[in-house]
Design a protein around this nucleic acid. Structure first.
Length: 284
DNA sequence: TTCCAGGTCCCTA
DNA sequence: TAGGGACATGGA
């Protein structure tokens, strides 16, 4: 076993950082809640796949692998894990707003607010596409099939894992394969468009700073766009979907549908943190 | 069977 | 610019 760690300037609750968002349920993520261990695969630069086990100890994120890593691969995994857990993100401004409004005050108290993300933006773009116009259980199934059929199988920590497929692999598989085996339906075309853009212009589509270009990917509409904005740490937009509407109409409008602008202005007072306010208002 | 889900695209008028 | 049908899939 090989262990390395990430010191945390701002400690947080590990369990909450994983489970505040449903991403932990999507392959290749594996969460052992009893042991408080998070497992998943990471790509290496020579196209290998590494299984990492992550847990928190002594104000550090600890990362364990069963194989020895090159310094470069270790640096890459440190970078991936820091990104996934938003280690360098500061939540103080949001916490201050919670105190000012005297709402969601358990968030600053428990150091909550982190929403888990994937090691790569490509994985998150695909996963957001998998959440559109379907039920959550089906999203889970599609992610499972995507990694099973197109990921690389690797053994670690007493079980089998699959990597999240690269854009190249998805492109090679093609639309018919996605339809038949991954059961992504009409989304297959969108996933391929994302893969195509990732391969041909990574600088334009795979950087957090490229947020404005995500909308050019087929299948990324307003809901998906604001979800991806959340992924890169911008919380000023809302993921207005059936779930949002159900929550807001039920909670703030006595079950009677208001106008579109009323529906979308419920969280205005949260300014740059509307997404987090909605999210934790809904899933508290 | 029919409906619809943590939507988006695209064609009309 | 807004409205509405089509789209793959699978569970209720």
């Amino acid at each position: 076993m090989f262990t390395f760690s990430i010191p945390l300037a701002e400690p947080f609750n590990f369990n909450d950082a994983i489970t505040s968002h449903g991403w932990w349920m999507l392959a290749p993520n594996v969460w052992d809640s009893k042991k408080a261990r998070f497992y998943r695969t990471f790509p290496t630069r020579n196209n290998d796949t590494i299984v990492g086990c992550i847990y928190m100890e002594a104000s550090c994120l600890q990362i364990v692998t069963e194989v020895e890593l090159t310094e470069t691969d270790q640096d890459d995994i440190l970078h991936y894990v820091s990104w996934m857990f938003r280690v360098n993100e500061r939540f103080e401004p949001f916490y201050t707003l919670c105190q000012t409004h005297n709402e969601l005050t358990d968030l600053p108290m428990k150091r909550k607010g982190r929403l888990l993300r994937s090691p790569t933006l490509f994985e998150d773009i695909v996963k957001v596409l998998l959440t559109t116009n379907t039920r959550w259980n089906q999203t889970i199934q599609m992610a499972e099939k995507l990694t099973y059929h197109l990921g690389e199988k690797v053994h670690g920590f007493g079980r089998e894992f699959y990597s999240f497929p690269t854009p190249q692999t998805i492109l090679s598989a093609g639309e018919a394969f996605l339809m038949e085996h991954v059961r992504t339906g009409y989304r297959s075309h969108y996933i391929l468009d994302a893969a195509h853009k990732a391969v041909n212009n990574p600088a334009r589509y795979l950087q957090p700073s490229a947020l404005n270009h995500f909308r050019e990917i087929k299948g990324i509409g307003p809901y998906a766009m604001n979800t991806l904005a959340m992924i890169v740490g911008r919380y000023d937009g809302l993921p207005v979907d059936s779930e949002y509407k159900k929550h807001v109409i039920g909670t703030y409008f006595n079950g009677i549908a208001p106008s579109k602008s009323e529906l979308e202005s419920v969280y205005d007072k949260w300014g740059d943190y509307k997404y987090l306010a909605y999210w934790f208002d809904h899933y508290k």
